[in-house]
Simulated scan of single mutants.
Amino acid sequence: MTEARSSLVDSLHEHVDDSLRIVGYHGGNSWTVDYVREDLQGTYETDVVDEIADDLLLNVVANERQETLYELGDMRATVRLFDQGFVVHVPLGQRDGCLVSVDDDADVRGRELVELVRRVEA
Rank of each mutant, 00 (worst) to 15 (best):
S19N: 15
R119S: 13
V114W: 02
H26G: 03
L58G: 14
E115D: 13
V117M: 05
L8I: 04
V114F: 03
T78K: 10
L81V: 12
D18H: 14
A62Y: 13
V114A: 01
E64R: 11
E51R: 15
G27E: 12
D47P: 01
L20A: 04
D10C: 01
H13P: 00
R109I: 07
M1R: 09
D104F: 06
D50P: 00
Y25K: 07
H15Y: 05
Q41T: 11
R65Y: 07
R76P: 01
E51G: 11
D104T: 09
L113E: 02
Y44F: 15
V33W: 00
D54T: 14
D104L: 05
V120I: 14
T46C: 02
G97A: 08
I22L: 14
V49M: 13
G73K: 09
G73F: 04
L116M: 14
V102L: 07
A53P: 04
R118I: 02
V102C: 06
V36T: 15
V9N: 03
I22E: 11
D34F: 07
L99M: 12
L8Q: 01
T46E: 15
H13N: 11
R95K: 08
G42A: 14
N63D: 15
D103M: 05
A106L: 08
G97P: 07
R109W: 03
D10P: 00
S11T: 13
Q84P: 00
A77E: 05
I22Y: 02
T68G: 06
G28C: 08
L116Y: 03
D54M: 06
T2L: 05
R76K: 13
V60Y: 02
G110S: 12
D103S: 11
S11R: 11
T78Y: 09
D17C: 11
N63M: 09
L116V: 10
V88H: 00
W31M: 13
V16L: 07
S7H: 10
T68D: 12
V88F: 08
R37P: 04
D103T: 11
L116N: 02
G110W: 01
E115H: 09
R111Q: 10
S30E: 15
S6E: 14
E64H: 06
A53R: 10
G97T: 05
E71C: 03
N63W: 02
G24N: 02
V108D: 00
A106T: 04
R37W: 08
L40V: 05
D18C: 00
R95I: 08
D10F: 04
M75W: 06
D34P: 00
D54V: 10
V9A: 02
R119M: 08
R5K: 10
T2A: 12
N29T: 14
D105H: 11
G42F: 07
T68Y: 09
V87R: 12
V23P: 03
E121R: 04
D34S: 15
V117W: 00
D107K: 08
